[in-house]
Write a protein that binds this DNA or RNA. Structure first.
Lengths: 179, 179
DNA sequence: GAGTTAAAGCAAGCCTGCTTGCTTTAACGC
DNA sequence: GCGTTAAAGCAAGCAGGCTTGCTTTAACTC
């Protein structure tokens, strides 16, 4: 039987924190023993639980990213997307957000199955679009939202271009008025 | 004095090849000794020349990517960008192209100076836009081209979404007709 | 061609990340 | 509480990646 509570949760959080802190401090290839030391945890616990550094980084990134930038329900598609894009933009201007995105992409190996995290995000988006559709608003596809809002924001971070304030909502505006 | 010719060049190419082959074969975290073995080269040579695995990967990616998808000179902005986007699209559908992009992004650490490779690409783009401007065509900015053509293509690869045939030129079309 | 010297190759040794069998701790169910 | 047992901690050993001083090779200069 699995034991999510108490000590296990504490160790997991401490390890996730240690990962983010070390990455943020520029120790980009800190290995498991160093992460364990920073977390105040025995290295063996990490090896047994995550198996590899990459698996740990991916888990930390997905866990932490999941809690950022949800899609609000404002009653209009404009509002929903603007709110969401604003959240993404803020995350992408934040050092930890940048680090997590970078870790996510870096540990995504080419051959594996698509990430359930990404799919979940796509479904959230689809749900917001469906609501707008029901209201009779003209709606773009999920792919268009990813292409014209998310992709530009992510690419700025990955290629170290500046994330200008207001760029998120502006991209939404452009998506919804173009055509 | 530096000696670019002959043996040095041979070793460099063999090592670059070995990197790409190993990555393509799924050996994503093959270390330097393994790369050296594959290249038929002494590990010490790699340590002395590149210093670290990341530096080697970055060098291999930049060197190889530099030779793909140049911007043609067709006489119209539509044509130039379509040709370029088609090249990028093909590179992104190619396994080696995907691997190189992935390696590039993965080894780009957050704090370093912007990559001269990316700047060079931006300048190429700017040159094409300038030519169109002189001709009196309406032109987007480099940022817009990056946001609405390059970002969607790259993100598909990084997040393992399919790169549909024709998507590159289609993105150009959308960029130039929108607004 | 002959000499000079980058750059590659070699070998030995250190260091450290990883594995594994066992012990200890502390969640969870009753 | 009490017992059960995941999960964390410990310790020893192994493997292999990295460093370094030295030797050898082969580009480049004249």
């Amino acid at each position: 039987m699995t034991r999510p509570g108490g000590r296990s949760a504490r160790v997991r959080d401490a390890v996730h924190d240690a990962v983010v802190e070390l990455l943020a401090a520029g120790e980009i290839d800190a290995a498991i023993p160093k992460i364990a030391e920073r977390a105040g945890v025995n290295p063996t616990s990490i090896y047994r639980r995550w198996g590899s550094r990459d698996a740990l980084l991916l888990d930390a990134a997905v866990t932490r990213l999941r809690s950022t930038s949800p899609i609000p329900d404002t009653g209009s598609l404009h509002g929903d997307l603007r709110g969401w894009a604003d959240g993404v933009e803020r995350a992408m201007r934040d050092r930890h957000g940048q680090i997590l995105l970078r870790a996510l992409v870096a540990t995504l190996s080419p051959d594996e199955k698509p990430l359930e995290y990404l799919q979940a995000r796509g479904e959230d988006l689809q749900a917001a679009l469906d609501k707008a559709q029901v209201r009779g608003e003209p709606v773009p596809s999920v792919d268009e939202v990813l292409d014209f809002v998310l992709a530009p924001l992510y690419l700025r971070v990955l290629f170290r271009r500046p994330v200008e304030p207001g760029i998120g909502p502006r991209l939404v505006e452009r998506l919804l008025t173009a055509r």
